[in-house]
Design a protein around this nucleic acid. Structure first.
Lengths: 109, 109
DNA sequence: TTATAATATGAGTATATAGTCATATAGTCA
DNA sequence: TGACTATATGACTATATACTCATATTATAA
């Protein structure tokens, strides 16, 4: 059985993972590779309502993945911990492995 | 706006992120660092019902994060793409940053 | 064959999350 | 000031996810 400390750590880690575990949020993180962007441009880029994007952004801020600054009317969001991007290189490896597996399966059929 | 290909990629990536975005699943992945384990031992370790653990395991298998082999009555699960573990080193960095931020905040109060 | 054990899964409930619309808030500028 | 713009949020609905219990499936071994 796990102790309380470990459980708390796993919950925190899960919160961060959850913060990026959504197609729209991944699209946002991906867009922010190019540098800081306002909500309106992000919404335009990912093709969703501003109110919806605003919510997704605040989830990622709470999780510590993004940070923002205000600039006049606009609010500019940016990646806080760019190591998040490393995660995607692993994810890509997983996807490539899946593709190879599917290929093998196809040959057997 | 995003094209269809990108959207599909982001959905796949989100599926993988979702597969580990849960405290129990993180506990499982963490336990599997030590090597392959059966459902009963995993359930014991993480402190949850076997049926529940079994479901979590199958989610991670579908996402390509885990794989399994049968051994008599037991089913042995293991990490398929250990690079998933790298994700946690980033997550740890995020958490440390949060801790630093909180410290700063405390000093201001 | 029968009893037992490990695992998986259907069905149900409870909870969490996403998305939309309307509205509030705050900054800009004529 | 008043009109306008960007963003955030409350309230709601729809959907997804987690968990539990009962049951099915599969393998083992007496």
């Amino acid at each position: 059985m796990l102790n309380k400390k470990k459980q708390l750590l796993f919950e925190k880690q899960a919160q961060i993972a959850k913060a990026i575990a959504h197609p729209l949020r991944i699209a946002i993180v991906n867009y922010l590779r190019n540098g800081p962007q306002c909500v309106c441009d992000i919404a335009e880029q990912v093709g969703s309502e501003r109110s919806n994007v605003s919510r997704h952004l605040s989830v990622m801020v709470s999780a510590g993945v993004l940070e923002y600054r205000k600039d006049g009317l606009k609010v500019i969001y940016k990646l806080k911990t760019p190591c998040i991007l490393e995660f995607f290189s692993c994810v890509t490896r997983v996807l490539k492995q899946q593709a190879r597996d599917n290929e093998k399966l196809l040959k057997v059929l």
